[in-house]
Write a protein that binds this DNA or RNA. Sequence first.
DNA 1: GTCTATAGACGGATAGAC
DNA 2: GTCTATCCGTCTATAGAC
Lengths: 204, 204
Amino acid sequence: MQQSRPETRIQQKNRAAILEAALDVFSAQGFRGATVDQIAAAAGLSKPNLLYYFPSKEAIHAELLGGLLDTWLDPLRTMDPDGEPLEEILAYVRRKLEMSRDYPRESRLFANEIVQGAPRIADELSGALKNLVDEKVRVINAWADAGRIARVDAYHLIFSIWSLTQHYADFDVQVHAVLGGPEVDPYPAANEYLQQLFTRLLTP
Amino acid sequence: MQQSRPETRIQQKNRAAILEAALDVFSAQGFRGATVDQIAAAAGLSKPNLLYYFPSKEAIHAELLGGLLDTWLDPLRTMDPDGEPLEEILAYVRRKLEMSRDYPRESRLFANEIVQGAPRIADELSGALKNLVDEKVRVINAWADAGRIARVDAYHLIFSIWSLTQHYADFDVQVHAVLGGPEVDPYPAANEYLQQLFTRLLTP
DNA sequence: GTCTATAGACGGATAGAC
DNA sequence: GTCTATCCGTCTATAGAC
């Protein structure tokens, strides 16, 4: 029986349910648009009970955003300088698109934050994010120096991978409106199109 | 002296100032995040005075969004079926990128709306927007049939143009964080990169 | 047309019983 | 740990004087 940290199973379960519900609500409504009542209801709790687990609405949001950037950048981190250049980049595109498909709420939570000026993660963007991108830009430029891929602006190459893949999560409703209904799955065609696009762009 | 519509110059000027201020605030904070006080202050008016010109916060937002989609789609509408295919598409990309550079607030207003499920413009997306895209998809496919550009999925081609160009307005802070400061102008390099990208993708 | 004052609703957070 | 009740700040919108 640990006294210092009485972390019961029910506590863990409720915390998890709150974060899950909060991801739903924040990603769909933004921070200001979301209400604690909505999150509590979605988590199956009363509002005061939710605030027993988290000190404030802000704290829930911060916890969600906190871990997000790291997992979001994992596919980029995985890009191997010693691999076959075109294959590494195409694999990155594929993984990033899979993340949009499998974790659209996380993508929209992030998008909401950035579009509104990233008030809560500006530091991480110019810190961890910039450092990782700078490192991978050097890798890509080295590949181009060696003549193994065509030379392109590596920063904008990375921007383009982000925007193209995240578009399918962030602008989901627009994609489905244009393609004609929620039953259409845009991802197979999107994947094929993007593989084709980057193959043609980068083949020397 | 017109009695039916006493549209004085000061009225026109105030209405314009309100819409201008509202674009600032809505695009930066989203609909829920914006307050009437902020908009009024930015327009140099008191809150009740603002509400003398517009019946509600919602009405201001609706008026801004209302005209937006049309002007936003103008560059696509301009794409000429009888022009030189690659040149038409590259020109569309160029104009769309210029719109991100010159009207970033409009882009972010739109992005805020779509990311949060487009509650106020869902109809226009599956109506006017879809119709125009369907039409241009037929044009692009005809170009591919004639062997004048490489065959790609035309819907995803259009999606990619949207996402790549709007990224520089919507994710502005992230772009500047990565490139290392607000004084960097990403647009010249972005334009060159995008022209290169679509040229390589579409050249038969 | 523009202001001060305020109504009325909502949302975040807390008190305190159980 | 969970609830009911409630406080208090904020926000939209209106009333009414000037």
